[in-house]
Amino acid sequence: IDVRFTVNGLDVTVRVRTEEIAERVKELAKNGVDWREIQRIAEELNK
């Protein structure tokens, strides 16, 4: 599942395995978490 969001004007796409992880990623993006941090968290959750 590809999750797309915009952080500080940057369009970011993170690929995740499940809808649940996708929701977590969207939540982080909404809360203004840095995209590199979101990427790292997504990689952890995908394991």
Rank of each mutant, 00 (worst) to 15 (best):
E23C: 09
E19I: 14
V33A: 11
N31V: 10
R15K: 12
N8Q: 10
K47F: 13
E44Y: 06
G9F: 03
A29M: 11
K26A: 11
K26D: 03
N31C: 10
W35M: 13
E44G: 09
W35Y: 13
V12E: 03
V33M: 12
Q39E: 11
G32Y: 05
E27L: 08
R15V: 13
K26G: 06
D2W: 06
N8C: 08
V12Q: 06
L45D: 04
I1E: 03
R36E: 13
V33R: 07
T13L: 07
E27I: 09
Q39P: 02
I38K: 00
A42V: 13
E27H: 10
E37M: 03
R17T: 11
I41C: 06
E19N: 11
E19V: 14
T13P: 01
T6S: 10
N8D: 15
E19F: 06
E20W: 07
R4Y: 09
A29G: 06
G32E: 09
R36A: 15
K47V: 13
K26L: 14
I1V: 10
K26E: 07
E44S: 10
D2V: 07
A42L: 10
T13A: 07
V25S: 00
R36K: 14
K47Y: 08
T13V: 15
V33S: 07
R24W: 09
T6G: 08
E20P: 06
A29Y: 15
T18F: 03
T13H: 12
A22E: 05
E37Q: 06
N31L: 12
T13I: 14
E44C: 14
A42D: 01
V12P: 00
V33I: 13
V7I: 13
I41N: 02
R36S: 14
R17I: 14
A29K: 04
E44I: 12
V25P: 00
R4A: 12
V7S: 15
R36D: 13
D34E: 11
V16L: 03
E19T: 11
R40C: 09
E37S: 05
D34G: 07
K30V: 11
V33G: 05
R40L: 13
F5A: 06
N31S: 14
G32M: 10
Q39F: 12
R4W: 12
R24S: 08
E37A: 04
E44M: 09
E27G: 07
K30D: 13
E23T: 13
R24C: 10
V33E: 08
N31I: 13
